[in-house]
Design a protein around this nucleic acid. Structure first.
Lengths: 347, 347
DNA sequence: GTGAAAGCGCTAACAC
DNA sequence: GTGTTAGCGCTTTCAC
């Protein structure tokens, strides 16, 4: 089974089959350039002698296209494999790519940027997930002049796929604040730049920017205002990444703080799930003593006990939409995908 | 920000900087071939004019290496993003790759094999996850004559990373059968080739092969024998893929079958998790009325209520080990990673 | 329908 | 230390 010979080249194949390289190439790429019979014969011969078609590197160098689509991720790849939301997104993307015979290359902005591998020259297009302020890899991607589509953030010149984060956050906060909790708290995600779980400060509460988390926080605060709550900055926790461990830490801090929150508005289902577990450990009954709501609607959300009230943001759909737009070359518009409040028994 | 110019080439850069292409190339690839000062100057100039280093396609064609490592997956990519075990494995792999400045390319054997993109020529090495009998893409991969390492299955000529599935399965079955359940049942994974959830037949019970599931089933049956159980084939369910939906279906069938099982030995934590949920819906108390054990020790296992007794197989470690061996060129041996029984309260 | 040949962008051997 | 050049494997134009 093992093989130590060099793979055949088109040129050698042409020699063996005793015709020109152009004919072999045409057999693989342009059926109209030769008779069906000859093409068939060549293809069968190739299979027999073990030539499986032109080498990607060479073809791509020549044609300037590779059939590879890259997903540019903000954090490390390893992190993205742990994040259920990223997982769903990648699932949607790969569904579309597979259907269209495209290969998926995962590129991480967190990669050691010194060692420039030049990999950004390979893909025919890029799906950029998550904001990229002054990321060197992203800048090299832009330089390629290839199609780019962004997800969960926006750059004027490029098409994008987003949801209305502020509205969605408003909806879910509105829903839970209608129950008149006494001391609601917020477990936010990536609110500030610290890599520690911590509370935010008053300044930060009013710090305007374009991030998703800011949009969501705005939605929460708007709902709070309408219900005459004033949520102070020290009732808002910052979780630096959407990992279970950090979420647990934040949930634990919140549920051991004074006054004890009776309502946790979480910026991700992961955080909400951790909060649910901490509450169970502490024998706090959900939803009677504590209401918990999440965001995302990851698959786990409906299986938790109690199942989680959340915002369904169809991450898989997001990925599919972005991949499809990229492949079909529909590169004009900005898409806002619908999201909706899903009420389950955690609230 | 948007860019429509063609990226600079090394040749153009050489013209602009008024030196030869070799010098530019050397500045990027072989620091020893020119003075540090000149190199520094070239690199800064390049950055200024927007040349970010040699194009991967060309370099790879020339050098025969790309810095890309491929993971060859049995099922569709989309499926692998949903499977928590695959996720952990990929996490481990990408940790190592990122540390070593390698790019990750995910290749699916399930891809439309007609349209041969030639992509298999690009990677410098392959991590093959899961058995590949007569898969055309795998055969093309073999043809490349590049390093290959297999995970969770074995081919004589290639190094591999595995666990002792039979022993692990024996251990966990032994543990739960010691509790003397009256009617144990097995929820297996990929036992046969059907894509339906179904029970297996007597013939299939004795059908020898090299698969993981066969190894695990052997372990279960050996433990059963030692405890004087005779588990009949109609007490063994086949789950075709490790998805939650299929697992739920199998668990539901098992828990509505007669005699009602009071012990479910599940071949994955996913299946066990679904069984746990079905049991809760049916008001069957775990572990009092029903013992459930899993396999894998996915992150969710310890968070379920009750937490799951399972086999910890360190999938992340598996991925790391495989990637590391591939990168370091340690291509001799077969590695068997340790796994262990983790007893929690579901049994 | 077919073949000869240029050249995609780069690296490395070799000459200077 | 630097420059010239062949050629990695392929596609495509152009001449036949």
């Amino acid at each position: 089974m093992k093989n130590n010979n060099k793979p055949l080249t088109l040129k050698k194949v042409a020699e063996i089959l005793n015709c020109s390289t152009a004919t072999i190439s045409n057999a693989f790429n342009r059926p109209d350039q030769l008779s069906a019979a000859l093409r068939e014969k060549i293809l069968t011969e190739c299979k027999r002698i073990g030539y499986h078609g032109p080498n990607l590197t060479a073809r791509s160098l020549r044609k300037g296209e590779s059939g590879v689509i890259a997903v540019l991720l903000t954090d490390s790849l390893a992190y993205h494999f742990t994040d259920p939301v990223a997982n769903q997104l990648l699932q949607g993307i790969s569904e579309v790519l597979e259907k269209n015979n495209k290969q998926l290359l995962m590129l991480s902005s967190a990669t050691n940027a010194q060692q420039t591998s030049g990999i950004e020259a390979l893909p025919d297009g890029f799906i950029v997930y998550g904001s990229q302020d002054h990321n060197p890899l992203f800048e090299r991607v832009v330089q390629q002049g290839k199609p780019i589509i962004t997800i969960d953030f926006d750059i004027d010149e490029y098409p994008s796929v987003n949801i209305d984060n502020q509205q969605a956050a408003f909806d879910i906060a509105n829903h839970v604040l209608e129950k008149k909790p006494e001391s609601p708290a917020i477990l936010g995600l990536r609110l500030i730049h610290s890599d520690r779980v911590c509370r935010i400060t008053d300044d930060e509460l009013f710090d305007e920017n374009e991030s998703i988390s800011r949009r969501r926080l705005d939605g929460y605060l708007k709902a709070a205002e309408q219900h005459n709550y004033q949520i102070k900055s020290n009732r808002i926790w910052h979780v630096p990444k959407n990992t279970y461990e950090l979420a647990k830490q934040a949930a634990h801090e919140a549920l051991t703080s004074h006054p004890l929150p009776d309502c946790l508005i979480c910026m991700s289902d992961n955080i909400a799930s951790a909060a649910l577990n901490i509450a169970r450990e502490m024998n706090i009954r959900v939803p009677e003593q504590l209401k918990i709501v999440g965001f995302d609607d990851i698959p786990e959300a409906s299986r938790l006990s109690p199942p989680l009230t959340t915002i369904c943001q169809k991450s898989r759909e997001k990925g599919k939409t972005a991949a499809l737009k990229l492949i079909q070359g529909k590169l004009q518009d900005k898409t806002i995908l619908p999201s909706q409040l899903v009420i389950r028994s955690s609230s």
